[in-house]
């Protein structure tokens, strides 16, 4: 016997009202990040000593620009979801928790937008 109403069961969203959405997206972004992050850490190791023209030429290549954008989307998303869980686990005060999560999400959005814009600016600029 279940104490949950038939409507609640059909929605399948549980007591947190968001179902397994967060859990699933954390895993999906993790899966995407396996190749993307491996490529990125190798690229940083290699290109952090590059001079300006080399760096420009590297980001300007379409494949690199697209992969960087993909890495930023998956990475910032995964990061926002992860920090949210840490805040939910360790911040007991409800106002601080909600405020902290909101701040973390907005900061991740802003950083992601800025990073993707920077890549596109180089990619669409003169080679």
């Amino acid at each position: 016997m279940s104490l949950r109403s038939p409507l609640s069961q059909a929605r399948g969203l549980g007591s947190a009202k968001e179902g397994v959405g967060h859990w699933w997206m954390q895993r999906l972004s993790a899966l995407a990040l396996i190749p993307l992050a491996l490529w990125f850490v190798f690229s940083i190791a290699r290109y952090h000593v590059a001079d300006y023209p080399t760096m420009m030429a590297w980001v300007h290549a379409p494949l690199v620009a697209v992969t960087l954008v993909l890495f930023f989307i998956a990475g910032f998303y995964h990061s926002a979801l992860g920090v949210q869980v840490v805040i939910e686990d360790y911040v007991g005060n409800e106002a601080l928790k909600i405020g902290g999560i909101a701040l973390v999400k907005l900061a991740h959005f802003a950083l992601a937008a800025a990073s993707i814009f920077a890549v596109l600016k180089i990619a669409f600029g003169a080679p």
Binding site: Y52, M55, A114, S115, A118
Partner: peptide, 10 residues
Amino acid sequence: LIAIWVLAAA
């Protein structure tokens, strides 16, 4: 820092 890196390059 990663964001600063690409923004500085751009």
